[in-house]
Computed example of a mutant assay.
Amino acid sequence: MPCILNIETATEVCSVAVSVDGRVVFQKEETKGPSHAVLLGTFVDEAMEMLRAQNLKPDAVAVSCGPGSYTGLRIGVSEAKGLCFGLNIPLIALNSLKIMANGVSKMKDLQDYTLLCPMIDARRMEVYDVLLNKELQEVRPVSADIIDENSFAGYLGKERIVFFGNGAEKCKAVLKSEAALFLDNVYPRAFNMIGLAEEAYAAGDFVNVAYFEPFYLKEFVATALKNKVLAAVK
């Protein structure tokens, strides 16, 4: 089994984990972000120092590639690409929503629920989401949705769906159904990338380090400056 360094920065959470031969040997995360620009480099340095002490180095880097925070994804992917260039190792890209679902799919008390719907906040009533079965296969593709009472009408009721992620909280009042379950405090974590990254490594599922870009799903829209003096200077 390979040694893989996993980086996750798609939401306000910053996390890094390392697996060696299927074992988690390093894990660090901060949930009170966003502080990726400050913390990510420190977490990676600590992980690399631990590996050097054991005469090890990563065989690959896995990164959460989106959808999610534009700034967070840029920071995470830039760090991952820099490591891959410097160490001459391959890059694995993993969907942020699927990373969340990978953790939830292992929960034993959800047997009665057939579909998983991870959601990442995309401002106002819009979320990035995907519908997956318990094997993490897509039932409905990744999309940016404005949630209303008719969202998931073709699925919710016919299927029992688990909703989770930082976009699910604002949907509770809208998606009212006995077939819906909302889980709190679920977010993408580097720890939940490990199994997915090892599968990708075994399959040789790598991306081009030079040309790879995060999966933003939507174009970045900059917020207009409120201070007219600053705006004029810009």
Rank of each mutant, 00 (worst) to 15 (best):
P67A: 13
N95R: 11
H36W: 09
G76T: 07
S105F: 04
E126V: 09
Y113P: 00
S69G: 09
L87V: 06
L40R: 13
D112Q: 10
A93V: 15
L94N: 12
L131D: 03
C65K: 15
C65S: 15
R124W: 12
G72I: 02
L56D: 00
K98H: 05
E30H: 14
S78H: 05
A53L: 15
D121Q: 05
S64E: 06
S96M: 09
A93Q: 13
Q54T: 13
I120E: 01
F85L: 11
D112Y: 12
L94H: 10
C117L: 01
K108T: 12
M50E: 10
D129Y: 07
V63Q: 03
M119G: 10
G66V: 06
T42G: 05
R52M: 00
N88F: 01
K98F: 01
F85T: 06
D45G: 15
I92E: 00
V38K: 12
G66L: 01
V104C: 10
M100Y: 11
F43P: 09
M50G: 13
G82I: 05
P90S: 03
P58Y: 04
I120L: 08
L87K: 11
D45I: 15
L39V: 11
A37M: 13
N95E: 02
A93P: 03
L116A: 13
N55C: 03
S35F: 09
P67Q: 12
E49V: 15
T71W: 07
G82Y: 03
A60N: 04
G76H: 01
L73V: 03
P58R: 04
R124N: 10
A47V: 03
M48T: 14
G76S: 05
K81G: 07
L115A: 12
V77E: 05
K32Y: 13
L87C: 05
Q111D: 06
V77N: 03
P34I: 06
G68P: 05
N95C: 14
L39T: 08
L56H: 00
I89E: 00
